[in-house]
Amino acid sequence: MKNISFLVAGVGGQGTLLASDILAEVGMEAGYDVKKSDVLGLAIRGGSVLSHVRWGEKVASPVVRKGDMDYLLALEPLEAMRGVEFLHPKSIVLCNTKAMPPITVSGGSEVYPPREEVMRVLQSAAATVYFVDASAEAERLGNLKVANVVMLGAFSTLLDVPRKTWESVILSRIPQKYVALNQHAFHTGCSVVKRSQPS
């Protein structure tokens, strides 16, 4: 069995690590050997966060080589672009559309790449790119923080693991009072990808 490798990218504070933890645990529950590696920067919030997750019969390295990532799950477009060197021609990308400009942009010294440029770069690097406005969906659900779970819901439809495995892993990680909200977020994500056209 070939390893399946995932790159999860986002910004500190977006729940990127929670998303990659869930992805790893789903793999374990689905019967795979699993390894994951996070890079946590100096600061708690605001920096780039990258996680490598691998599923396989026997996984050696938790860190994946460039050109070996089968999937990119990006919670932020700029961070998705930083991950393209890890992709190969058959990779699949799922990207949240909501931009979080870094302070170098909001402070005015640098320019955030325009939407068309994000699309062009991602499409040049992968076979299929899906965009999901997960932050808008999360805001509609009343809590921006569940954008990561919306993304996981959408991502789950691209993989061959039963939905109930995803749900049980996600709900086991969520405090009781947020269970309903996260269930909603996951289901929203599941239907969002069905609606959106692959581009």
Partner: peptide, 23 residues
């Protein structure tokens, strides 16, 4: 020869940095 590394699209060099900041 190496497995992988066959197709590496390079990251655009002009992407804005995301340096850590005081919250």
């Amino acid at each position: 020869e190496a497995k992988g590394m066959t197709h590496s699209v390079t990251v655009p060099t002009d992407l804005p940095a995301r340096t850590p900041v005081l919250c």
